[in-house]
Write a protein that binds this DNA or RNA. Structure first.
Lengths: 209, 209
DNA sequence: GGCAAAATACCCCATTTGCCTGATACCCTT
DNA sequence: AAGGGTATCAGGCAAATGGGGTATTTTGCC
């Protein structure tokens, strides 16, 4: 496939895991474990100054955790692909990692063959994820059960979010501006906000819009 | 692995592809192609009334496209896993499919072995995606290059989205309300909107907030 | 049929917003 | 030195918003 080795770095605080991963990678043709670091802080400078293709990144580490490490490195080295390699499978870890710039997310029980495949895959423009992680990511797009399900009002909110004012929304929905106002008032109460701005933010977060 | 066959349905308007897929699935132990349909409309009733585990769904089909078909079936049959199987790889198709309720997204050049593996994977709670699709999904979480990168203003927008008014934002950022006003005006221009509501929606969509 | 909830509509009024004009200053690049 | 971009601050003004009411009609449900 690729003519040159894929240069890999490992950031992982557990000595044994770090060594094992390095052995797996170095022991496979086409892969070269160029660096290993025992926490995020130690990885920052070397990874900024040296080129690697893929970084395997643990999350829970002393001094600087993997998510923050990615957050700081990715903007500076956008061509580097970061794969989180962690036991954490909670939404917070997953989505913070992805938002920080990770291009892959594997659980630590990933078998060596799949790990190596994932490294190749991310380098080829993919986004390798453990099956359960991928499902979580996909599910994050699925609509939530509409909280308390307000009736006509939700349409109003959608239109407001598009920049319309009471009058325009009223025309669109064939209602009086007064009515729209009443609806919006009710929506504010249900969403526990008191401004259009906050309502729209909450509405989007809760997938009502 | 599983004691019983995985029951699969195929919704695909191209006769040849449909037959080929059916042959692949029926020819593999552990899989059973229970139904095939030539468009979304034809699939609706049978899929509501009969149980299948996984549906392979094309997108572009006459009468009822695959995305709308999933949108209508998934809420009624949440336990069914839908895998889009299409040549389309544009963002609109990808994200509309996922939002409609698809749990997987494969391109039509997926080799048979990988297709079968994906069916098993989705049934096991995964979310099989072609590599390039997965990357798109992941990238959708990444912050956009700040359009024209407004400097201080973006902070203002974030605070406005939390329901603050000019005065509160000004206090928070140690600025004059006038300054905040100016910033917001500039942001509106850059986002091509003219109301706070639309700005927040666009800001969230573009991941500036 | 009857009741409760939602939807519809209207009023007043203080506050806020969006837009206009203008200004000063700083940091770039040319 | 000149120009462009950004950040800062200011006053004025028409329009929109948010909050407090009240009241009628429609709807869904028992």
């Amino acid at each position: 496939m690729q003519l040159e080795n894929i240069h890999v770095a490992i950031v992982e605080d557990d000595h044994e895991i770090r060594q094992t991963l390095a052995l797996i990678i170095d022991g496979t043709p086409g892969f070269w474990c160029k660096h290993t670091f025992e926490n995020g802080q130690a990885a920052l400078k070397p990874l900024l100054e040296n080129h690697v293709d893929v970084v395997l990144m643990d999350i829970e580490m002393p001094q600087l955790n993997g998510i923050d490490c990615v957050r700081r490195l990715k903007p500076e080295k956008p061509q580097v692909d970061f794969i989180m390699l962690t036991i954490r499978h909670d939404d917070e870890a997953i989505f913070q990692s992805i938002c920080a710039g990770a291009s892959g997310y594997l659980l630590k029980d990933t078998p060596p063959a799949e790990l190596l495949q994932s490294i190749k895959e991310v380098k080829a423009g993919g986004a390798p994820m453990s099956a359960s992680i991928a499902r979580r990511v996909i599910q994050s797009f699925h609509p939530i059960e509409k909280i308390a399900a307000f009736g006509t009002g939700d349409r109003s909110l959608t239109l407001l979010a598009q920049g319309m004012n009471y009058r325009s929304v009223a025309e669109q929905l064939f209602l009086s501006p007064h009515t729209v106002k009443t609806h919006i008032k009710n929506i504010y109460e249900k969403l526990q906000v008191n401004s259009r701005a906050a309502a729209i933010k909450k509405g989007i977060e809760d997938r009502l819009i």
